[in-house]
Computed example of a mutant assay.
Amino acid sequence: MKRVFSDEDLVKNLNLYYLNRHLKKKPIERYHREIDSSQLHDREKYKKKSEILLLNSFLHHFPEVTFENLTCESPDFIAKIDGKKIGIELTEVINNLEIKKIECQMNKIFRQAELLLEEEDTPKHRGVYFLEFIPLTMQMITDKQEEITQNIIKCITRKKASGFVKKIRKSHHRRNVFITHDYNLSLFDGLSSEKIIDLIHKKNQKYPFYDSSVDECWLVIVSDMNSLASRFSFIQNKEDLHKIKSPFHKIFHLENLCGNLVHIK
């Protein structure tokens, strides 16, 4: 079976979160070690560790949280908050599915360029490179994968944008070469409240199958602002979110870059 993830990808995700001043580093590292020591399949370990990264900003709003079970399913985690046993179900909202497909393909190109740069001279190229590209379609990425890879390497080596790369900036990184998309936000990047509501309805259907031993079950919907496909600058028709009916005791929407939390229920 083809692997759809790698330990290297997760390490690079963790490194990206380290650049975020909101990251609670020590707890995250401890949680990852606990997940690693579990009996979960490698694929499930990867999923759990990625979920914990998404949940990180949530921990700043509930600093007293202690996890009782990091490796359960339905809900994803069981924690103690204010003396209560809380089940936490985590789900990510994708703002643009087409961009998600493009982003996945570009991430593969980034990994290839990183490896080639590290093979050439890791100390020389070490750093985090934020790249902004000219508009790219899936067809262009598929047809010109090698050309885009070499273009990225050339821009990083020469420290100058050209070709497919519209803009490049670099941050310090003490270990490896890490390439990612730039974080520029558009004032017009709206997240439809309907997408959040649809997710809530889907989770409502699964609610009867969640662990009934918990005192409360919370739903945390995350917008991964490190992803082009998920980032947004405002929620459209935000007032519609508060009309939702759900058996979950509390529902939140979280964006994980600045940690802004919307209490839906």
Rank of each mutant, 00 (worst) to 15 (best):
D9H: 13
V11F: 11
N15W: 10
R21N: 12
H22T: 15
K26E: 06
P27V: 06
H32T: 07
H32C: 13
H32Q: 08
I35M: 10
I35N: 09
S38P: 03
Q39R: 15
E51S: 03
L53C: 05
L55M: 13
F58N: 03
H61Y: 06
H61C: 11
P63Y: 10
V65W: 01
I78T: 02
K84G: 05
I88M: 03
E89G: 07
T91G: 04
V93S: 08
E98P: 05
K100S: 13
C104P: 00
M106R: 00
M106Q: 03
I109R: 01
Q112Y: 08
L117F: 09
T122R: 14
R126A: 12
G127I: 06
V128Y: 02
L136A: 03
I141G: 07
T142N: 08
K144H: 12
K144A: 06
I148Y: 00
I152H: 00
C155P: 01
C155G: 02
S162P: 00
S162D: 04
G163W: 01
V165F: 01
K166W: 00
K167A: 10
K170P: 00
S171E: 13
N176R: 15
N176E: 12
F178W: 07
F178P: 00
I179A: 04
N184I: 06
S186I: 07
L187V: 09
S192E: 14
K195N: 13
I197R: 09
I197Q: 11
K202Y: 14
K202A: 12
K203R: 10
N204S: 06
N204K: 12
N204I: 02
P208S: 07
Y210N: 10
Y210D: 05
W218M: 06
L219V: 11
V220W: 02
S223K: 11
M225F: 12
A229F: 07
R231D: 07
F234R: 13
D240P: 01
K243T: 10
F248P: 10
L254H: 06
C258R: 09
C258F: 14
L261H: 06
V262W: 04
V262Q: 02
H263Q: 11
I264C: 10
